[in-house]
Amino acid sequence: MHCRDNVPRHGLVVLAGNHLSFIDSIVIALSAPRPLHFLDKDEYFTGTGPRGALTRCFFTAFGRIRVDRRAHRSAQASLDAAERILTSDRAFGVYPEGTRSLDGRLCRGRTGVPGSR
């Protein structure tokens, strides 16, 4: 049985994964049997030039939710958007660590709204 067989094709689902590499979100989204939404840091949506435009287009096309981790209100707005996804029976992905590991080791999980700690 392939792990994607464990993901329901309909209804609310939350996928929690370890975030050890930038490629994690791409691989998980492409291998999921349905569209999957993640929170992504604001910097992916604010780049300039051709590379910034391409990155912004990519993350927007994949249904990513922009979160400004420096501001409590912005972070809360992103969580509200995530709640709307879940209440409409769509799939949501989350990394309990709150960020990608810079050294490849599993980080401690986080609770609460980013930036409120």
Rank of each mutant, 00 (worst) to 15 (best):
V27R: 04
V27H: 04
I28E: 00
I28D: 00
A29N: 13
A29P: 00
A29E: 03
A29L: 14
A29H: 09
L30K: 12
L30W: 15
A32Q: 07
P33H: 06
P33F: 03
P33N: 05
R34F: 02
R34D: 09
P35C: 09
P35S: 12
F38A: 00
L39R: 01
D40T: 15
K41S: 06
K41T: 02
D42L: 03
E43F: 02
E43T: 11
F45I: 15
F45A: 09
T46C: 11
T46R: 12
G47W: 04
T48C: 10
T48V: 13
G49T: 09
P50H: 09
R51N: 07
G52D: 02
A53E: 12
A53Y: 04
A53T: 04
L54C: 04
L54W: 13
T55H: 03
T55S: 07
C57K: 08
F58Y: 09
F58H: 10
F58W: 13
F59S: 15
F59H: 14
T60G: 09
T60E: 12
A61E: 08
G63C: 15
R64L: 14
I65W: 06
I65K: 14
I65R: 14
I65T: 06
V67L: 14
D68W: 08
D68C: 11
D68V: 12
R69S: 05
R69M: 07
R69Q: 10
R70A: 06
R70V: 05
R70W: 03
A71G: 08
A71C: 13
A71R: 05
A71T: 12
H72T: 15
S74Y: 06
S74H: 11
S74F: 10
A75S: 15
A75Q: 06
A75W: 01
A75K: 00
Q76P: 02
Q76R: 09
Q76D: 05
A77K: 07
S78E: 03
S78T: 01
S78Q: 02
L79W: 04
L79M: 07
L79I: 12
D80I: 02
D80P: 02
D80H: 08
D80L: 07
A81I: 08
A81E: 06
A81P: 00
A82I: 00
A82T: 01
A82W: 01
A82R: 00
E83A: 01
R84N: 12
R84P: 01
R84G: 11
I85F: 01
I85V: 15
I85Q: 04
T87H: 01
T87C: 04
T87I: 06
S88A: 13
S88N: 12
S88T: 11
S88D: 09
D89K: 07
D89M: 03
D89Y: 03
D89N: 10
A91L: 06
F92K: 01
G93C: 08
V94Q: 01
V94I: 14
Y95C: 11
Y95K: 05
P96S: 12
P96A: 14
E97I: 14
E97G: 10
E97S: 15
E97K: 08
E97H: 11
G98L: 11
G98V: 07
G98D: 14
G98R: 09
T99W: 11
T99I: 13
T99A: 05
T99D: 09
R100Q: 08
S101H: 08
L102A: 07
D103L: 01
D103Q: 04
G104E: 11
G104I: 13
G104K: 05
G104W: 10
G104L: 05
R105W: 07
R105Q: 12
R105P: 09
R105I: 08
L106G: 13
L106K: 15
